[in-house]
Design a binder for these strands. Sequence first.
RNA 1: GAGUGUGUAGCUCAGUUGGUUAGAGCACCAGAUUGUGGUUCUGGGGGUCGUGGGUUCGAAACCCAUCACGCUCCCCA
Length: 463
Amino acid sequence: MQATKPSLPKGTRDFAPETMAKRNFILNTIREIFQQFGFLPLETPAMEKFDVLTGKYGEEGDKLLFRIFNAGELRNYQPEDYKEKGDAIVKKIADRALRYDLTVPFARFVVMNRNELTFPFKRYQIQPVWRGDSPQKGRYREFYQCDADVVGTESLICEAEIILMIHQTLHRLGIKDFTIKINNRKILAGIAEMMQATGKETDLCVAIDKLDKIGQEKVENELIERGFQQNAIETLRPLLQFQGSNTDKITFLEQFLQTSEVGKKGIAEIKEMTTILQHFSPKTNQPLEAYQTELDITLARGLSYYTGAIFEVKANQVAMGSISGGGRYDNLTGTFGMPNVSGVGFSFGVDRLYDVMEELQLFPKDTLTSTQLLFTNFDATAQQYALPLLYDCRQKGIKAEIFPEHSKLAKQMKYADAKKIPFVVLIGSDEMTSNLLTLKDMNTGEQSKKTWQEIVQLFSTLS
RNA sequence: GAGUGUGUAGCUCAGUUGGUUAGAGCACCAGAUUGUGGUUCUGGGGGUCGUGGGUUCGAAACCCAUCACGCUCCCCA
């Protein structure tokens, strides 16, 4: 058999033990916060029926779905069949796809289990998702999302708590310099209404979203390309140019949107959310600022299912896409036949959090919890002497192992060193006759003779 | 979809206007040291130079094609 050159599919990665230790540090932190806020765990399959996923992410999103081919079905068709009815055949031979995010599978789960669930239902979900996008910095084809969503309530406490969770998590991870950007799709709809371009929110969003990247002039050009009238752009201009604090923006928007019902609703939601944040921490009188939150009128987000609040988090000082995002969706379950269930949620991108933390060197040094104690293995007799002690270690919760071969001591010490095992117990003939074992501290290099009791005692005080 | 860069040892890379047998560091194995790692010294194994073709007396290098991967734009976590 010819040896294959080992390689990974584009945009995927292995996570070596050192990497996993750091990833787990992030994951555990997030999981703890989610649980503190009353979210329950959920997992769903990697693959979903294709129809479950399509039409939820906008045109771009659908293109990025990884389809799963059913090789068996493939054989039923000839090449010439594809010219005639290619789409129909693809539908048959690839009726499943890898999940694109965790929110849509969650909505599918909620609808399927509506009679068993207690609403409002709060769940968190930490699993990989797949997107057939071309990879680049901070962008992978397989990556983990950590979602927390609430469905079955329109309460703006949920929005406020999302801000609290993001704020707490990032601070706990050591990422201090970040901005939580918020906006509301109803405000965007109101703006579209004022421009007499109702129904063109998506085009408006896509263009307006780029304001901080390409500037006002190019945004206006793009709007014209997308079919907006010149006078509509005149209407929009003061908004694009507006600078000011969160409070200033709200005041300005109230003025700007005073004849738009939906727009006013959006502002009211932002204001109420702010009030709730205020009540969470009565001492501060600028709750948005206190939680590093900024109302950003240009924030739009691509996913098409959002209808209310939208969030996006940017780590400052690092060139990286958003590390978290989310929003409220009023009718996601409606596409599965369960209307009038509002939900709101958000997601952390673990892989981007990791990249940010790596770049800013924020990981604690001791994330890798390895073996605490290694037993050397000179020969069969020493091995037999050590095994019951090793058993004892595990009973007592000490992470321990024995070198599995009777190798040269140098090799065994090298193993302990490479694996950063802090203590080694050497057992030779002297030790076995005296029952005084040699304990070596690998950090200092010091050795001492100790009874097994003393060694166990030492570890219980260490942990 | 558009642009751009990189493919040489297990890993990170060097390789002169095209010229003998393609190098270094790390890693691995052995020895200096028969019971001691992280420092040192000595020796050793390991390469279809991404793949295919072309130019040439001669190609890792130049040309063409192709594949793979990275980065930027679009979009996103």
